Simulated assay, not measured.
Amino acid sequence: MTLDPPTMLTISVALAAAAALYLAVEWGTVRERSLLFWSAGFATITVGSTLALLRMSGLLLIGVWFANGLLVVAHWLFLLGVARFTEARLSKAWYLIFVAWGALLLLPGEPPWSKAVFVLNSSLVALLSIRASFLLRPHGKSLSVGAVQLRYVLLVHGLFYVAKVLTAIVPGTLIDLASLGGAIIQISLVEGAMAIMLIALSMTGTERYRREKRIARLAARDPLTALYNRRALEVRAPRLLEEVSSARPGALLLIDIDNFKLVNDLHGHIAGDRLLIALSEMIRAHLPEGALAARLGGDEFVILLGDAANERVVALGSNLREQFQQTATEGFATPEPVTLSIGAHLFDQPPASLAALIEQSDAALYASKRGGRDSLRVVDRTRAGSEALPAR
């Protein structure tokens, strides 16, 4: 099969249509707007390439530059998709691209205007592609191989159009694009077909990676409070526990809400959920760097600390109790106070397991409950023997 311009345009139509359809299907599943912009971009290339093919076949439905103008629109949609993907905000100046595109369509297709239109069209495509590539630059390490690939494919694609501009402005190299002749046209069509395929694959791979990361993140989080769930805590705790030593003792705080059932019974479960969310936000605000926090279930929470002195544990527990009691008292009237009971366990040797550590802290929590609730009970195992501090 000869790779002449009509054949390459036909291939481009097929590839762009397939990419548009595939990204649209992905969008229907994931509902990420970046996929919708990218799909629209490839659909625009499909329309432009089809119109160019019809014109070459003698059906002069459009002006000679309209299909090339649609290529600019397609790359503008690609840029919007990348901006959406990277959560970047584009300046309103980028919308002036349509002004340049309108000017492009008004110019005649005969020399010497063909050269001017060619330079303007290629410059816009290059500008849009390179800008999209630079938006992806800060995200290379935080995203997938697909994001890195997409960045470089867009960069090379943009630089190719820069080379086309330079070729056109060199004296004596006027290109009559109206006839769609010359080696530059065939090279452009081959590059365009390859770019379509690579960009589509990179886009879908990048979004698929983000979706998988989001699913993994959701699986690790408690859906109500957004703290880690118990399973995620068990995965992350070993690294922290391995660093425990006599010089850097660890601590686990087990937190339970006293009389939480009264809030649900008197104010409804939505009010109870609001109180759980409020406590999770307090925990998050007071959480030291490197520490872990999770909701074990119901109204029970856990905080795992490294490099934790007794005074630090007492201060953390006391601050949480005071802030929580104030919030609960102001927001929910109950016949008995809604407070926090906390059992804390300090240790200077890695425990046998996280479950064993939670069990030991649960004993301290039970002692706190038995002592009248609304208290912090600390069991310090960092020295010989055990020392149970009085309720606070």
Rank of each mutant, 00 (worst) to 15 (best):
L354W: 01
P335L: 06
G250Q: 10
A74Q: 07
N310E: 08
D256A: 00
T204E: 03
G372S: 05
K141W: 15
A291M: 01
Y152I: 14
A355N: 01
Y366Q: 00
L389Q: 02
L80M: 09
A200V: 06
L54A: 11
F85L: 04
S12N: 15
W101Q: 06
A83E: 14
S245V: 12
E207G: 04
M194P: 08
H139N: 06
P108R: 01
T50R: 04
R381D: 02
N259W: 06
L54P: 10
L354D: 08
L218P: 12
N229I: 15
L71F: 14
F347V: 09
F42C: 11
Y366C: 00
V25R: 13
W38H: 11
T225C: 03
K115S: 05
Y228D: 15
D348K: 00
Q360S: 09
I97E: 08
I175L: 13
G48E: 02
R55T: 05
L357T: 04
I257A: 09
T7I: 03
T29I: 11
V313Y: 08
G290W: 15
A193R: 05
R248S: 13
V190H: 07
V190Y: 09
V25P: 07
L316E: 09
M203L: 08
A74N: 08
E110M: 03
S280P: 13
V190N: 07
L60T: 11
I175A: 12
L3C: 01
N229L: 15
G140K: 14
G109P: 15
L60F: 02
G192R: 13
R33W: 09
N319P: 03
R214W: 10
M197S: 13
V313L: 08
I45L: 14
A100E: 13
A67D: 09
S386Y: 00
L304Q: 10
S91W: 11
R370E: 14
Q360A: 08
I196H: 13
E289K: 04
V338C: 11
A356R: 00
L376T: 05
A291G: 04
S133P: 01
L124V: 07
A355S: 01
R137M: 11
L154M: 15
L279R: 02
A232T: 13
R383T: 14
